[in-house]
Design a protein around this nucleic acid. Structure first.
Lengths: 230, 230, 230, 230
DNA sequence: CATGAATGAGGGTTCATTCAT
DNA sequence: CATGAATGAACCCTCATTCAT
């Protein structure tokens, strides 16, 4: 007799509402990814974002408070998605050299496959790339493992990190003007392995191993953001 | 009060006026360098620029038309100044490997010595760095020479360019948060030489050669922009 | 699950629903009183009101339609509550002079006792005070009675009304910055009686009569709004 | 030969610029006075202000930064103007009783003469009235002088202050709905003098003395804000 | 050429109100 | 009835650019 009975109904309502919120959040993040890629990560995007996403001004403020908030959300989402794509392949390898080479190549491959991601990361540069764990977790771990196991001949992790990340980013930047020539990513990876102390023939071998084509799961941010297209 | 042509006087006037214009232009570029370094190359800077330079709004528009104009002017000025500092040392070397190692180290050294330059280039990233000939002219030439002479073992210039520039920029970015550890630049250069195909002991040898301290000529942009300390 | 009219049950349901409505309405009015007191009667309060009351946006609109609606409801509620407190004491007096003095003093006493009320009335000013019958009914009646009986020497009710109400409101305003000094209300009342034509010694006598402490009934708006302290 | 000669020209420029600034400031304050009077002192006025003043949005921000800034500026300007009008008359009187009566009557007279001022002060209430020295300086001084000289029989200045200010403000509020009846201000003043301890016949005599009509100097804020009109 | 007031487009933010669940 | 996401009108504020002096 007293109000609000039916806990099942409550649950249902709650769940449905949470899902709706989640979907709207994704929609905004997707649109933001596109806009940041086109206009740069420092641009004032709210107007263009809401028109791209087709929502009202007020809705934006129900999810984010500032431009910076959005940038962080997009960075995190991109970071998660890329790791989700790359990690399975990288972790199939026991050799840190192979993991690094595969990581570089898949990273550039994804950026090429999904231009929105490429543009976003290129515009964001090191600020976005090293600011949200996209790379900060896995790469140092691999470098340390390689050094400690004698696989790499490096006295210090930091310059090696700079070299791997910087090389990749420079190639990503190059890609924004014109498609990378065939083999660019492989050659970049091969150079990186050389720099880490591998012998030339082994570096080439590892960096040129055939790579499985990534499958974008159709509900991922990457797929929705225009993947498989151009 | 009445005009008497007097060609000599005319000339003098013209010359003085041109010098005044030149000084004001430099003053604006210097201020812009500082502001871009603090607020990023995409920031709206005119207000802060004119207050830093201590000139009026109208004066600014007598020298530049847009924000982008200023960015280009600063990029060119920085590029010229850095080349002017680095080139004499690099050109003393016949070996392209040594030139590249010296270039990377001096570049990072200058950025450390003159924080305004470091901040500006870090903020500007590849867009500024590769957009104004700062590096586009000298580095490819060295890479080609090294490849053709058999000094480098690279099949393609582009990945090598990406590696050298990207590594350096990543280190520059790292420097913005905390001073580079001793030897970081040398190790980075050594890695780069390794990647270009030099043997490890030679790469180390070249990358660790003692470096003369750069002298900032006191009227250079770099010196005025706060070099030598801060 | 199927409907069976059962009139008794119907009545019960109806009654319970009405009580629930009533309680929610009171809760909203209380919260609004607090918020108006803190932020001013012209502030946009809905957001803060619903969070203070702990209800949803939609619930608010089940009870009120506009900001102004709420202000009216609060004014009426405050008006009713204050009259309910003050009237018994005032009506125990036959002398209109005594009634006015007691009214002023109790009014200020209540505002001091229940800061939320004081803040609300001070923020609302004459607009709230003279807009909802809080005073419009009783004070003119007393002034007319006093004039007609020869107790007051006033030629016109309006200036006397302005004097009584204005004085009290100014004191209320003063109270918002720091507690009134002892005797302030009494002296104010004494002045008012003087102005109405009483002799000085009689005015003092009446205005300084000891006053019973008001008891806030615990379910009143005043008590719930933080009365009895702060 | 060197730039920027002619100090006379400089002076002229500077002076002209300062005058222009001054005029624009006045124009904005005038418009703000009107808008505050119509919409209340808590209203968001910038949009309406700039359209009333016929200036651009940016111009507003060249002179004020916030709504509150404008309110302060208007309060100060009104305060200054009113004092400038009233003071000469009040200071012609040696008797503090006469000064207070004249002050109350001229204040109300001005508010009636210049509806914009009346509306502004009524909307602003005690906050504006006692927040900017409009009254805080002169009234307490007169009250103290009257008390110390034995002219007034008051034990405390504060309640007397509240009575004078509160009465006047209540009358000002009344005036916003309909013109004050003839003699309202005089009767109010007479009551105030009674309350301060004067005898009834003397209070009446002083409060009913004929009053010179105020002359609004044509360049004053008051005149420009619609004085002499309705 | 230098100055700085004025401009107004562009973007940011709040908040009363609606409505599907 | 209660809920809270979505809406969009109405504000607020900045800043590149122009122009009279």
């Amino acid at each position: 007799m007293d109000r609000e009975p039916d806990p099942a109904l409550e649950d249902h309502r709650t769940r449905v509402a949470a899902e709706r919120r989640e979907r709207m959040h994704s929609r905004l993040v997707e649109s933001a990814l596109l806009v940041f890629g086109q206009r740069g990560v420092d641009a004032s995007i709210i107007d263009e974002l809401i028109s791209t996403a087709g929502v009202s001004r007020g809705t934006f403020y129900n999810y984010f408070r500032t431009n910076e908030d959005v940038l962080v959300a997009v960075s995190v989402a991109v970071s998660n998605e890329m790791l989700r794509m790359i990690d399975p392949f990288a972790h199939a390898e026991a050799d840190p050299a192979a993991r690094i080479a595969i990581g570089m190549r898949l990273f550039l491959g994804l950026a090429e496959e999904v231009p929105a991601i490429g543009a976003f990361l290129s515009r964001g540069g090191l600020r976005v790339l090293t600011g949200n764990g996209l790379i900060n977790e896995y790469l140092p771990r691999d470098l340390i493992q390689g050094r400690d196991s004698g696989r790499f001949h490096i006295s210090d992790v930091a310059p090696a990190f700079d070299m791997v990340v910087g090389s990749t980013l420079a190639a990503l930047h190059r890609m924004q003007n014109s498609a990378l020539p065939d083999g660019h990513a492989s050659r970049l990876a091969s150079q990186a392995l050389l720099a880490l102390g591998l012998a030339a023939d082994e570096a080439d071998l590892i960096a040129q191993r055939p790579l499985l084509k990534l499958e974008l799961s159709p509900d991922s941010l990457l797929a929705r953001a225009g993947g498989g297209r151009k």
